[in-house]
Amino acid sequence: MGKKFSNLLLEFARLHRFLMRFFREMVTPPFEFKEFIRQCYEIGWRSFPLISLTGFIVGFVFTKQSRPSLEEFGASSWLPAMISIAIVRALAPLVTALIASGKVGSQIGAELSSMNVTEQIDAMEVSGTNPHKFLIATRILATTTMIPILTFYVAGIGLFGGYLSIISKDQLSMLSFFTQVFDKIGFVDVFAMVIRSVVFGFTIGFISTYVGYYSSKGTEGVGKAANSAVVASMFAVFIEELLIVQVLSLFS
């Protein structure tokens, strides 16, 4: 019991050191700008097809499922306003973060742990390259930058899915749909979406790089790291969502 507790404390100490190292590397030159752009491409652009499909389906299905409840009260005309709030406030950041946890988290976890197993990280270190700057800082910054951008995109495509779901039954022009949507969304909603997605992006990048960098040796370690990166990132995203909702409800 005592040993488990001391191991837990040691793990927290290592997490803290890793976090502080990231902030230090982020602000001290030389900056690995080229690698950062490459990671943005890998994380952002390569996630586009999956994110597009998921965002569209979430918007379409959510609208379809919500319609009967509103129709019961004769309030189906409120559908655009309702789905806009649901998508912007909650669904877009959460869905993007969960998809990114699966796709990007596993990719980063597996890549770094296999580099660790094959001594590529050691090779980098002995040849005068700082792996914390080149491998860690660039990936965390890329997820923190790209996940908010992907979230805006998911919100847009989700709303478009919702619009298609509405016009499959009702007559509604796109202009009047988006007028109702933007009437209902306020600055606070968009701000909350950005905050959420930045926090989620940072969390996914941080957890995946940490798990990959400190993975155990051997091929088993690679599988474990990929798996842990996904599970731990998703778990952290849900916990953060819960906390952010509580904090935001204080201001609304």
């Binding site: 580099m115 094959t118 001594e119 590529q120 050691d122 090779a123």
Partner: peptide, 8 residues
């Protein structure tokens, strides 16, 4: 390195 450690 023993396994060359080339960046694959």
């Amino acid at each position: 390195f023993q396994n060359s450690a080339l960046y694959d």
